[in-house]
């Protein structure tokens, strides 16, 4: 069995619905839009009737717990002002988690199963880390952080920046793709009970990956902004 054929088949990038030169709409983009619509629409729907009073609805309580937990997690990693980073970091986690949870829908291909999507997310982290670091400590101070502990470390620091971005992208992609691929292989061998178990396992690993991706991004940002605090 040609693994490359499986990968190409399983990636939503190659299922193109509309194309005009360089521009195209493939399954990955379309699924992402669907997830965006779901998340934004659901949020708008739930937060439409938020009450600042003592008595709140269950939905609101759940949302507040989630947001509070996210803030707490970010703070625990070492970011002093968690509200500033909440939008970015929480969205990373929420997007990946939602993409994983939706795999229970038959015929659904997670956009995170595409290396393009995970690369896009990793690139966003690659850009966001120095941006947050500069915003927090200033450009000079941030650049100096590459010379720590000594200037000898400069090339290694730069390599580290790129390698961790690559690691982020490949880790998420590998996990997502492997889950989907194992599921597809097992469907061919044992079509009934076993794939369900694997699907559950895939959900679990997917949620863990979402958490890891979010936490790693948080740690990188924390490391970049810690210079001044130290």
């Amino acid at each position: 069995m040609d693994v490359r054929r499986w990968i190409v088949h399983l990636s939503g990038d190659d299922i193109i619905f509309w194309q005009y030169g360089f521009l195209k709409i493939n399954q990955t983009i379309l699924t992402t839009w669907g997830l965006m619509l779901l998340l934004a629409g659901g949020s708008a729907l739930v937060t439409r009737k938020l009450s600042p009073g003592i008595h709140v609805s269950r939905w609101q309580s759940a949302l507040e717990i989630l947001v509070s937990m996210a803030l707490k997690q970010i703070e625990e990693v070492g970011l002093g002002n968690p509200k500033k980073y909440l939008s970015y970091l929480a969205t990373l986690f929420v997007f990946i988690a939602t993409a994983v949870v939706c795999t229970i829908i038959p015929g659904y291909e997670p956009p995170t199963g595409s290396l393009s999507t995970t690369a896009a997310l990793a690139i966003s982290v690659f850009v966001a880390v120095p941006l947050f670091g500069i915003a927090e400590t200033g450009l000079g101070e941030y650049l100096k952080s590459y010379l720590r502990p000594t200037f000898v470390m400069l090339p290694f620091n730069i390599i580290s920046e790129f390698s961790r971005t690559l690691a982020l992208a490949v880790r998420l992609f590998g996990n997502m793709m492997s889950g989907a691929m194992i599921l597809a292989i097992l469907l061919g061998i044992a079509p009934f009970f076993f794939p369900v178990l694997m699907s559950v396992l895939g959900l679990l690993t997917g949620m863990v990956q979402a958490y890891i991706f979010g936490m790693l991004a948080t740690v990188y940002i924390a490391a970049a902004t810690r210079t001044r605090e130290e």
């Binding site: 992402t32 839009w33 690369a119 896009a120």
Partner: peptide, 15 residues
């Protein structure tokens, strides 16, 4: 494995 248009589109989508 990587479609650069999709990467850019996903980046924008994510933002």
């Amino acid at each position: 494995l990587i479609d650069w248009f999709t990467v850019i589109a996903q980046l924008v989508n994510f933002l």
